[in-house]
Structures are given as structure tokens and as C-alpha cells.
Design a protein around this nucleic acid. Structure first.
Lengths: 138, 138
DNA sequence: ACCTAAATGCAACATCATTGCAAAAATACC
DNA sequence: GGTATTTTTGCAATGATGTTGCATTTAGGT
């Protein structure tokens, strides 16, 4: 992705243009799977851990990334669709975690079923599937 | 639940009978919702944190409890059905987390839909729903 | 170019979880 | 019941993950 496009993405989400944000955004756009903090840190070791955490937080707050919970407690982060805004995230897609390589993918063509529970209010639903991914299954 | 029943449950899962395991098991059987580690610790503060962690691990390994992932990274633990064995856990039920009181319930009458992804092997699927529970919604 | 508000780096801190090891307890064996 | 063997426990130390305060630097508006 071109420098100007990355810059526009940041601007569109009212985020200041900084080296760290550009590099983080670029890494996410060129990676086809979600990234853990660890992966991010080892890839962009120029920046302080704290800065990377804060970058992730601002990206999530502004709707650039979404946080993907993980059964092991480690969160990963994936790029949001265009439909996401700071006010309204729509992440009803299923997440797949490979037990072999650890990669987490967003399965945008699979959707989380609507769950209705009488007497309850449902705000969010996360479906996390684990197993072997395409490459590791080969 | 009677002392003898608790003891039998432990024996059935080939776990030694210890004070800690009896107390942890009793707490889980008399509680209708899942328990976080924190709740466990504050309830059973006689025991060392490490011992409680190890108790949880052995219970999970032997199929007495199952771990419930949480989008915040804190896991909770719930009792397994009778159908669970050390070899085969079956937790295709949906978990509900209340944003207000924090309680996590196992919705045994809701089941996680089977997810099929071409070229992938699916081992596990976790569906976590959050919102307001029955009591907090009232 | 200047000013203001935001972002960064560093250090310290907070929280959650695990490991090594000696002492204590539980089961197996006689 | 008494003893040997294995497991479990408690304590201390360590690791892993994430956050906060604060001084310095940087970005963007004027």
C-alpha cells in the first residue's frame, strides 16, 4: 500500500501522522492474518512497547483495528472493514485460530449467528474457532 | 452436595482427595455460574494462589472443569457435564458474560453452530456472548 | 516560524500466571 | 496399622503482559 494511502487512512480516522502509526498500519495492511502484540513488537522493535500499546489502543478507539479475544488470554488485532467507525464496530465475522502456526484469521464470509436469550440483552457475540488452517493441514 | 459424592467425583477422574480439591469442587457445584480465578481466590483464601492454579489445571486436564475464554483476557471456569472425559470435552454450549455483574453463565440450551471451512480442520468453537443478564436487566 | 495539544520513551509499577524446591500429605504396598 | 512411594502443597522467586506518570519531542493549526 502506498504511503499516501496509509496517510489518508490515518487522517480519515482523525489520527495524527506519526512514524509509529504509519509503520504499524503498513504492517497490518500487508499481513493477511491478525497480529498478536508479540508479533508486532518483534517486527517493529524500533518503537517502545508502551508506544505500540498506545498505538493499538488509539487504532481500536478510532476504528482502524479490532481486538480479537483468544482462549489463551493473548489478544490479537485485525484490521477493521471499511464499515467500521469509532462509534460502531461491526465484527460479526468468525475468527479462526490455528493450533499449529498460531495465526489468527478473520473469516469475513462466515458470520456469527444472532443469539437471542429471553430476558437478556445481547450486545456482542464472538465466535472463535480453532484447529488447523489451510497451510498447516496440507 | 454430599462429601461422599464430591469424593467420588474426584476419584472418578483419578484425582487424589485433598482438602483444596474438595473445597474447590464443592464451591463449583454449589455455584450456578462460572467462576473467575479471582472469585475462587477470595472465596478460598486458605489456600495459596499457586495451589489454586494447579488445582484448576488438574481439574481441566481430568475433565472436571472447562476453561471459558473471555474477551478481556481473564478466563473463567465452569463445571463440565457428565459427558466430559479427560479425552473428550464437549462444550458446544454458548457462554454468556454480563457486562454489569461480570458473571459468566453456561447456556446449555444454546449450542454453538458447526462451522465448516473448506481445507481447514475445526477442532473447537467458542461462542461468547456479552450484554446484560436476567437480573441486571430487571 | 510559533504555539498548543498530542505522541513518544523511559522508568516504575501493577497484575496475572508459572517454576523450582523442600516439606507435608495421600495412596499403594506389605 | 505401619512404611515406602508418589503427589500435592506452600513459599519464594521469576516471567509475562499490560499500565501510569512525567519529561521530552513531534505534529498540525495559525
Amino acid at each position: 500500500m502506498k504511503y499516501s494511502e496509509l496517510k489518508n487512512t490515518l487522517k480519515k480516522h482523525s489520527l495524527r501522522i506519526t512514524d509509529c502509526r504509519m509503520d504499524v498500519l503498513e504492517l497490518f495492511t500487508k499481513t493477511d492474518h491478525a497480529l498478536s502484540f508479540k508479533a508486532l513488537e518483534s517486527e517493529l522493535d524500533v518503537y517502545d512497547r508502551v508506544t505500540l500499546y498506545r498505538t493499538l489502543h488509539s487504532f481500536i478507539e478510532k476504528g482502524v483495528l479490532h481486538r480479537i479475544p483468544d482462549d489463551s488470554g493473548f489478544a490479537s488485532y485485525g484490521i477493521c472493514h471499511e464499515t467500521c467507525t469509532p462509534q460502531e464496530h461491526s465484527h460479526d465475522h468468525v475468527h479462526f485460530k490455528c493450533d499449529e502456526c498460531g495465526h489468527i484469521e478473520c473469516l469475513s464470509d462466515h458470520h456469527v449467528p444472532k443469539v437471542v436469550i429471553p430476558g437478556y440483552v445481547v450486545n456482542e457475540a464472538n465466535l472463535i474457532v480453532s484447529g488447523l488452517c489451510n497451510s498447516c493441514n496440507a
